[in-house]
Every structure is written in structure tokens, then in C-alpha cells.
Design a protein around this nucleic acid. Sequence first.
DNA 1: TTGGGTGAGTTCTACGGTGGAACTCAGGGT
DNA 2: ACCCTGAGTTCCACCGTAGAACTCACCCAA
Lengths: 402, 402
Amino acid sequence: MTTSPPAAVGTVPPAQRPGVAWTPLTGAAHRIAVAVLLDGPLPRSELARRFDLSAGSLTRLSRPLLDSGMLVETTGVYDATSGRPTRPLDVDETSHHFVGVKLTATTAHAVLTTLRARVVAAEEALLLDTSPAGVAATVAALVRSLAAHADRGSGGGPVRAVGVSLGGRVGERGTVRSARYLGWDGVPLGEPLEDLLGLPVVVDNDLLSLTRAEQWFGAARGCDHFAVLTIGEGVGYGLVVHDEVVDAPDAGVGLLGHFPLDPTGPLCPQGHAGCADGLLTIGAVTSRAAVGLRREVRYEEVLDLAVEGDPVARRVVDDAARGLGRLTAAVGNLTMPRKVILSGDGIRLAEVGRAALLEQVAADRNPHASELVIDVQRTGFREWARGAAITAIRTFVLGTRA
Amino acid sequence: MTTSPPAAVGTVPPAQRPGVAWTPLTGAAHRIAVAVLLDGPLPRSELARRFDLSAGSLTRLSRPLLDSGMLVETTGVYDATSGRPTRPLDVDETSHHFVGVKLTATTAHAVLTTLRARVVAAEEALLLDTSPAGVAATVAALVRSLAAHADRGSGGGPVRAVGVSLGGRVGERGTVRSARYLGWDGVPLGEPLEDLLGLPVVVDNDLLSLTRAEQWFGAARGCDHFAVLTIGEGVGYGLVVHDEVVDAPDAGVGLLGHFPLDPTGPLCPQGHAGCADGLLTIGAVTSRAAVGLRREVRYEEVLDLAVEGDPVARRVVDDAARGLGRLTAAVGNLTMPRKVILSGDGIRLAEVGRAALLEQVAADRNPHASELVIDVQRTGFREWARGAAITAIRTFVLGTRA
DNA sequence: TTGGGTGAGTTCTACGGTGGAACTCAGGGT
DNA sequence: ACCCTGAGTTCCACCGTAGAACTCACCCAA
């Protein structure tokens, strides 16, 4: 989808070489371009080794990429070895920009990034009107504003594509099949936005988007087998095996919410005792704390109180952290990843309750199991939006949403 | 490994065409041959569609395979459609035979199979001497006996490779890195056996072997995302994602044994309450039943008593089945497979306790989750040995153990 | 200063796998 | 007897690749 040729939005793009599109590249040339994008400046010799190609083939393949300006030769980077110095190939990351928009029930968070997913600017807007047309209008306004920012930037390239992520299932051609928070069901979002903006728009599930973002430009670079767990309003889960995101029908839509963690724990609306939703989410933590503290509290306040040693907050936080540890260990035991990335808006829990978390992971892991790297990533809406931008980058570079 | 040219064992092989080996085939020809092996007779036109090749390429690619006798043209199979009838390609599965041997603490179970993993004969031998040399001698005797059987068969081809599977980690070149049941640690098994037999020998973990067997010639044919759970002396687990077995360092060595299932359940030696080992294994079921029944009982007897309505046996079986249901649901929730295959020597539990099993799976699955196919496979040692044979077939066909 | 060593990158050619056009083949339907 | 249809064949042009022979750019040592 969204294979229409990228068109600039807003003012005319600054002086830009003719440019070869990434998508129609042949197999080997495409692999080379992607490798350079992901792994920074790389000399032709390294690329030849990596893809098992001859040096001659690399010269042949890289020339049109250089001629079109898609890749550039970096200068001044020398290897420590003897022999002729390498002239590594690199991408000019500012030659293309992307906008990522993360939709929540109330707000649209947007970022402008370069081709390498470096965030250049950020904006957000309240979603006063959550009708499809209203959301599309808000998103379009954010994109236009950020695109204008990109055009004002010092010689940078225009916005090439837009990524939109939300909690819900997304089908073909940018259609939102169901989005609980927005109350949508079978709503076309990508195509109306493309019509409004004249730009390719990719709509994707927020968790799959974040997971792919970690894979390409995040904490899981170079790791072909990892999982992402997020806690916030709900519990999110993404899985990458064999260097590919697991995109099963159930992926990314919070089906882990009722994973049993502690049968003595609090009840959830569906009658489960101590399931993930009833133990780990921001709402679960604050409402448990409120019961003990006999007053309403905000999430950050509970965490602060726990740090200060308040017994109620400490207990609530540690219980939740133990639950998260159990969930992390279960993911580790059943999917056998090298790494689990803990993330989400409520993930400070994993820092405040770190001891309880690690204790539970250790208890649930087989002592003979190989080490499981647990990587806590403080993320906010900016990272979710960046994930959406990376989905747009992937579409631009790969030609598909996957 | 085991790339030495296959040599016949025992008598001279019966009249055999020159034969092209599977392994040095080029990419496309190899894919075609494997597809024909796995998916039965296939016409060239179907193969061309499947691999996105032109009809001309298919003629070119299939000719040497037919000339060498690796593939044969089947006759008399016509499509229902109009046009010229197809002449599907097939393999002559009896042109090559394989031996698979499953090692337990006390016994070596062996089967002789065709290229399509059809079991032709089976034998077993007690492992009176569990020293590496003793086991190798026993295995070699079994292989020689079955190879002689293959030679006596009506014009069938000789044994081409041998697969050995056991519970434990297996390293490079057929070295057993650790095998709890045999008390081995860093024991070379594959190479001594190759020397004894003059045949390629592949040693593999029994669970990965069984999982790959289900993938190629078992209940998971054509399914690119499934899990295998076995219960017996221990709890086994294998996972296939993106059509490839997850071969992490922890795969196949029973690390799920202490997966928490029921915190009110019985204790295991490591102090876990209600972990998988303490609830699901044959030993756990029989010892719990023995406590309630005030006498020693065998596993099958417990299951029979449960069928007859004995309250103690019923309770023990249902508790275990619920635990298995919880484990199955956890696998489903965390790895999102299309199918979970329940298997192993103790799997009759899943039939006798079917209601409790399904009830627990339903309770732990999100009601909005997509359907999870639960496939209970009554397996015995014959299937474990067949799994080992399929590992040998894979090595013969693919040239690698994976 | 100069020449050799070294590994990066280029040029050119032979080769092998591929698609596609034009063809034959073997059935069914009218 | 004729055409239609889809399977399979033959042949040729094309394209991506490896490999050999080459140049290039730097370091080092005499």
C-alpha cells in the first residue's frame, strides 16, 4: 500500500538531487542501502563480506546509489589497519524527513524525524473530536506544521511519509479494524489522510510499531530475538523472533491483559484474580494505593511515596513489580529471547520496584537458564510517536509495512 | 557436519540409478526437490507458481532431477480442470532409508523409515551399559540390524543417514554437551558412531528433533507458527516461529519444568509450589495419587481410575490437566501460535482430563483472542525415534542439522 | 625521499540462472 | 472434426555475479 510516489507537502523542497527511490531497488542493492541506513557508515569491503558478494559487485551496486545521492561517501574515516583507507558509504539522514503520530484517546502526539529516526521536532494536539474526520483533520494539521518546520530547516529534505500508530487492530490500506480507545470499528484512516496530505500514510498498531522501532533504531538493534513489554494504561507485548516481528492476529492488542500473575492478587472486571491488568497498569496501581492510603493519588505520587518508604506505596509497587517480574520471566521462559525490553508510560515502576522485579524474575527462571537481559527503557509519548515515524521510514525504505 | 558422502552399510545396495545428491543442488532446484518431498506429487505448473518461476525454468530445473532418478513423474493423476493434464513430480520414498534412535536412561528405541518418514520397522534394545562406548555399540547394533532389514526389503534403497536424539544439549559435530539422564557431559557420540557405521550420524536434542518432525512430517505440516508441549518424565517444549524452530541456548532442555502453574499446588524439590514438574509429570501424578489412594499406583492405573470415577484419581488428573491447560494458554498468549501440539508419553492425561484442560485454557485465554488449535497427539517411543529419523532425513536433504 | 607492503576499490570478461516468446502436447467441449 | 485451454518444451536475450588483473591510497622502513 501507499506506493504512490512521494510528493512534497507545503513549500517546494530545497535543492534536491534527482533521487532514486528506495523501493524499486533490486535485491542486492536494496540490502546494501538498508544495511548502510541501519549500521551507519560502512565501507564497501565490509558490505561485500556481510552479503557474500565480490568486491566488483559492490562497486557496480554502489555506483548508482552514490550517483543518485541516496548514499554518500564519507571522508576522513580511516581504519586502524594498513592498506588503502576505506571510503565508507553513508546515508544523508537529513535528505528525507518523516512524521510519526501516536494517537491516544485524548491526544495526538507527533514528531518530525530524519531518515535515521532522529527526532527533530515534536508537537501535540488534543483530540477534541474523536470522529474519524476530526482525528484526520487534527493529524493533518500536525503533519503540515511539522512539514513546514522541515522545510524551514537548513537544507533538509522534505517529509516523505507519515506513520500513524494507535492501540487497536489495523487492516489493509490503513483501515482501523477496531480501536477500543477511540471507539472505532472498520474506519478508513490512511487513505483519507493521504488525500488530505498528498503523502504516503501508514497506519499501524502502536505496539508492533514500537517493537519494529526498537528493532531498527532502538535498544534491540542487532538483536534478532527479543520481546517488548510495556505497562501504562494497559499491558502491551511485542515479540521479535528470527529477526522478524511476530504479526499474529492477536499481536499488539493487549491480549496479555489477563495473564495470571498472582492468584491472591486483586480482582479485575472479568473476575480474574491477580491478572496483569489488575496488577500492573497505572490504574491498578493507583486504585490499590488509594484504598490503602485512604485518598486519591496520582501514579507518580505512588512511586514517589514508595521511594520515600511509605509502607502502602511500597507494598503496592513491589507487588506490581513482582507481577511484572513474573510476566517477564514467563516471556523469557516461553519465548526464549536474548533480551526483554521493559517500556511504556508506567515503566518507572520497574525502577522503583527494581529489587522485587529482579527477585521474581530470578525465582521464576531456571537457575540453569541462560542470562536474560532486561532493558528498562524510560519512554514517553515522544517514543511512541517516534515508533510511528519509524514505521513510515520502514515503508519508505522497504516498500511494505512489515 | 556429517558431510561425508553417504556410504551403504551391510550388503551392496540394490540396483540404484547413479543418483544426484540432494545437498549440492542449487537454490531453486533444491527448493523444488524439498517441496516435492514434503507436499507429495506436485505438477511443474504448481511448483512454478509456488516459487515464482517461469514454466521454462521449471522444465530446465526438473530435468536433471528426473534424469538422476531423484524425482519421478507420476502417471494417471489428472486435474479436474480443462487443458493438458498435469504430470506431477514425486519422490520415490523407498529409494533411501533412514534410521532414527531415541535414547532414554534405560533403552534405545530405533525405527527404520523411508525418505518420507514412513516407519518400516522398529527395534529396541536395553542400555545395560550407559557409558558412551556402550551406548554407541548398542546403537550401532540396532542400526546394523535395521539396515539389514532395509536391504532385504523389496528393491528399496539403503540407509543413508542415522539420527540419534536424547534429552540434553547437543553441540557441534555430534557432541553431547550434557545429558542428565545418561550422566554425560561433553561426550562425543556422533563421530564414534560414524566411524562404527560408515554412515552420516546426526545427534540432536530430542525435543527439537520432535518439533522439526512435526513441522515436516507431522501434525504441523504447512503450519509456520506452532508450539509442542510434551509431558512424560519431564515437561518438554518446542517452538516454531516464522517456519523455523527457535533454537535458543535454552531450547529443548526442560527449562519449563519450574514454570509456575498453581501456587496452591504441590511442592517440587526446588521449593516451587505447583510448578510444571510438580504437577504435570508422570512422577508427580503417580505420587500425588499414591498419597490419596494410600498405595502405590502406576500412571496408566491412575488414568484408568479417573475414567472409572475414582475421586482421588479424578482430582489428581483434573488438577494436572488444569495445570497443562494453564501452560498451554500461557504458550498461546505469549507466543501467539496457530496451534499447540500436546504430546509425550504421559499425554493420555489430556484425554482423560480433557474437560478440565479446555476449561482452564478458556479461562486463561482472552475471549477476544483468535482460536488456538489444540492438537493432542498420542505418541510413544516410536514417534520419538521417528523424530530422530526425520532429523537424519533433514540432514540428508538440507545438508545441515537445522 | 623513495620504494615495497597492504588492503580498498575499479574495470572488464565469462558464465550461469532467469524470463518470455513461440511452440507442441493432451485432454474436454461443441 | 474443430477449437479451447492449460501443461510442458525449446530457444534466445538479458542481467547479476564472480574472478582476474588492475589501480589507488596510505603506512612503514631503509
